[in-house]
Amino acid sequence: MKQLKNSTRIFTILLTSFFFATPVFAVDGNELLRQVDANMQPETYEMYRKLINIEPDGKKKEFLLYTVKKGQDKMVALFLSPASEKGRATLRLGDNMWLYIPNVGKPIRITSLQSVVGGIFNNSDILRLDYSLEYDAGELVENDDTYTLELKAKTTSIAYDRLMMTIDKKTTMPLTIECYTASGMLIKTLRYSKIEDFGDGMVRPSVLETDSPLHKGYRSVMLFAKMKKKEFADEVFTLNYMSKVDELR
């Protein structure tokens, strides 16, 4: 009788394991990516960011940005400091990007691969839209505590052709993202850390660090603060509004 009980227990454990394991193997990469997006940022919000470029000798340069995002493909970032950059605004509408410089007085088109701040973060890092908008999920590998998800750019207008994203199973948020060119060259590695409660149900990493094998010894760090859900008119995300973004704060 005891043996039967044991056999039943083992069978139950195996059956339970089977049923519990199945969804893991059946995780859809694109669905997982959408979940990552939902956890990383709400659809419409404002936030403040500090970008820090760190040189090999420890010298630092900091930039403060006010950022507003609406829907999946509208985003604008305004530089608040340093004084030399104050008033600069970058706007992204889908694949389109513009830079407004007060001393130039008009928006000019820029590309995602350029960097308006120097250092390792480029324009697409600063004006990052949802991953699921720009990338299709490829191979998904399950590890003990993480998933490794390969992402392929949907169009050639995306800054990085391929990403390798390591996702924390517990939080469904990215830990590291390796960014590759079409030729397979590693351009940079992004590392998220320090999960923080921003309020209103937004719990996400508050620090993003990056380095690049192309710029050995250099690092760039992005700190996130005061992220909160807020509604904005569509007209805020237009060229004519770029000189007035500060009025949204």
């Binding site: 006010y66 004084a83 620090v207």
Partner: peptide, 20 residues
Amino acid sequence: EEFSFDLEEIEKSPLTWGGY
């Protein structure tokens, strides 16, 4: 030190000025 973010830095004043 590297990762400090002083929230006072982002307070907005109705009057802003600058230049070079």
